[in-house]
């Protein structure tokens, strides 16, 4: 039981590492996912192809393999960055493929008539997408995007295997110090729960706030 109180700073460091990975990678995944989703519905076919390839490659690659490719592959091409940045890149790009598909399914839930009404009023493709279609798509993608970001938070544990400071990795230090492994994992699980439940809470608020009657 005193594994937490004795080693609070180790836990705190790992916890903050996971929070950091989650926040930055989420921001990257949301931004990239948004761009890729607009590519996939764009009237320009080369953009659609690019979006499709991006999603297909990243969604179908095991995340661990992607970590290897980024952390060991990119330095060979002269791109040397801190491991934490590499980890954020790998996590963010991987998750962006899932965000893109969630957004795209949201776009497809908006009835066609909404876009037609906007166009019949003289709005351009860009105005129609940004002012009429996406704001409505946004409301229906809140739950799946929330799930995707929770998965991201948990996937960040893989970064620990590449010596990035994060929550799960703290168990190695603590078990070497001879603490009970069960209690160590218990407190690690609590740490993850704090992060994932926070994400759930944020998305619940978003859903309540933006859930306009249809």
């Amino acid at each position: 039981m005193n594994v937490l109180t004795d080693n609070f700073s180790i836990f705190a460091e790992g916890f903050l590492g996971t929070v950091e990975l989650t926040v930055y990678a989420s921001a990257l995944a949301l931004a990239l996912g948004f761009v890729m989703a607009s590519f996939r519905v764009a009237p320009v076919s080369s953009l659609r192809v690019f979006g499709t390839v991006w999603v297909t490659v990243l969604r179908n690659t095991p995340l661990t393999l992607l970590f290897f490719a980024v952390l060991l592959g990119l330095p060979r091409f002269g791109l040397v960055l801190p491991f934490k940045v590499f980890a954020i890149l790998a996590l963010g790009c991987y998750t962006s493929a899932f965000i893109c598909e969630a957004l795209r399914s949201g776009i497809n839930t908006v009835p066609k008539g909404q876009g037609e009404a906007a166009r019949s009023l003289g709005m351009t493709f860009h105005q129609t997408l940004s002012m009429v279609v996406l704001p409505q798509a946004f409301r229906s993608v809140i739950p799946p995007v929330g799930s995707t970001l929770i998965a991201l938070a948990k996937n960040s544990a893989i970064a620990g295997a590449f010596s990035v400071t994060e929550l799960l990795g703290t168990y190695k230090t603590l078990s070497e110090l001879g603490y009970n492994i069960v209690w160590t994992f218990f407190w690690i699980a609590v740490g993850y729960l704090i992060i994932t439940l926070t994400i759930s809470a944020i998305f619940n608020v978003l859903e309540k706030r933006w859930g306009v009657p249809r």
Partner: peptide
């Protein structure tokens, strides 16, 4: 398609069977 079409559409109003008011 394009800006010129959008401009022209602004001159012709349309009312649909399913209303198509912006739900949000």
């Amino acid at each position: 398609e394009g800006k010129a079409l959008a401009k022209l559409r602004a001159e012709v109003g349309m009312v649909f069977q399913s209303f198509n008011l912006f739900a949000h």
